[in-house]
């Protein structure tokens, strides 16, 4: 495990010394800030109307929940940029030879890369907490759904990152890795759309496969083991594919 952490540290460091890491972080904050503004303005309008009609409306339900659900959209565009370098760059520059000839197992390398990516993603989420903090400063939202929401985001991001890692391990070219990852993320999201015309049984299956669908309960403040297991098994499967891909690459040379 020590080796995995060494590699994770190197990966994390790589994000923070390269301009790319800061650009991704800045864009992430920018997009989140935009959604925050949009939802806030809407929420203010709604609450003014509802004050005339009935009681105050729930900030968790009408503001934080849709806001966190929008993070999935930001992830779709920005998470491929985190993983696209992971293997592709090491293969292109030849540093993969260092890793593969060090006394470290493939699993340790893959876990290290995954932990590094998820660590950087966690840093991105930490930045967005500043916005959510503003709501806590000026209002009284429930904190539990916020915590479960962020837990869900972390798990959902983990799925994206494990798939991204796998795709990066199949190519030397960062751009190919990034583009392919984006497409696969998108498909994993919109796979449930087919369900609407595929009959109820198929719809349930396709909905279950959609990564974003599993996030809804988290954003409502519910931790359902069904979703946790889905995310964890998805991540394991992604890392398993990465492992097989690295192994295959070795045999083919």
């Amino acid at each position: 495990m020590r080796n995995a952490f060494t590699i994770a540290g190197k990966e994390m460091r790589g994000f923070f010394v390269s301009p790319m890491g800061w650009v991704v972080m800045g864009l992430y904050a920018l997009l989140f800030g935009y959604f925050f503004m949009a939802h806030l303005t809407y929420f203010v309008q709604q609450s003014m109307q509802s004050q005339m009609g009935g009681g105050p409306i729930n900030i968790n339900q009408f503001m934080i929940r849709p806001l966190l659900q929008n993070v999935a959209l930001i992830n779709l565009f920005l998470l491929p940029m985190i993983t696209m370098r992971a293997y592709a760059e090491e293969k292109r520059s030849g540093t993969i030879e260092l890793l593969l000839t060090s006394p470290v197992s493939d699993l340790q390398i893959i876990l290290g890369k995954f932990l590094g990516a998820i660590g950087f993603y966690a840093a991105l989420l930490a930045v967005t907490m500043v916005y959510v903090g503003i709501l806590f400063a000026f209002g009284t939202p429930e904190w539990r759904p916020v915590v479960t929401g962020y837990l869900g985001l972390l798990l959902m991001g983990g799925c994206f990152l494990s798939v991204g890692l796998f795709i990066s391990s199949t190519t030397k070219n960062q751009v190919v890795a990034g583009a392919a990852t984006f497409v696969v993320f998108l498909l994993l999201w919109i796979i449930s759309w087919l369900g609407q015309s595929a009959g109820p049984a198929m719809a349930a299956v396709l909905e279950y496969l959609s990564i974003v669908w599993h996030f809804e309960d988290f954003s409502k403040g519910v931790i359902d083991t069904k979703h946790v297991i889905y995310y964890l098994s998805f991540i394991t499967f992604g890392l398993f594919l990465t492992m097989k891909s690295v192994d295959t690459e070795r045999w083919r040379g």
């Binding site: 790589g14 010394v17 390269s18 520059s93 030849g94 540093t95 993969i96 030879e97 260092l98 000839t101």
Partner: peptide, 11 residues
């Protein structure tokens, strides 16, 4: 092991 291209991390 020293590979043909030294495996250095540029940053």
């Amino acid at each position: 092991y020293l590979p043909e291209t030294p495996p250095l991390y540029p940053d």
